[in-house]
């Protein structure tokens, strides 16, 4: 007799482990490294984040003269948030970043 049969029959009666994703969401844990956001008020324009970013995702925005993160390159390593002296950059729990609008793919 196949060994897995009891397990399979038991699974039919159990609650599935998967969730219907877009309708049911599983909250990421505390400390999750999602989209980095910049608090422009706190930024003192020391550009440490630009030097720390391993893949040059951060540039200086022309309009605001503050750092702007291009999420197309960001690897969500969190180095910028770690290095910022005023804690102006923070990693959020946001992870659904696919978009058709290129302006949305920036964190400013």
């Amino acid at each position: 007799m196949p060994r897995i049969l009891p397990q399979v029959l038991k699974n039919v009666l159990r609650k599935p482990v998967t969730v219907k994703y877009p309708y049911v969401r599983v909250e990421p844990p505390e400390g999750y490294r999602g989209r980095p956001v910049i608090d422009k008020e706190k930024c003192i324009r020391c550009w440490l984040c630009i030097r720390a970013c391993p893949d040059r995702a951060i540039s200086v925005s022309k309009e605001t003269k503050k750092p702007s993160i291009w999420l197309g390159r960001c690897t969500f390593c969190g180095e910028c948030a770690e290095v910022c002296p005023t804690r102006a950059i923070a990693m959020t729990k946001e992870f659904e970043l696919a978009t058709y609008d290129i302006q949305q793919a920036k964190s400013e």
């Binding site: 482990v17 990421p28 844990p29 400390g31 999750y32 490294r33 690897t75 969500f76 390593c77 969190g78 990693m91």
Partner: peptide, 22 residues
Amino acid sequence: WRDREYVMDLREMISGSRVHSA
């Protein structure tokens, strides 16, 4: 792969990301 998800969750909790722990 269901059980693998448990490990991934642990890693996410410890390091902040499921795959790239950084």
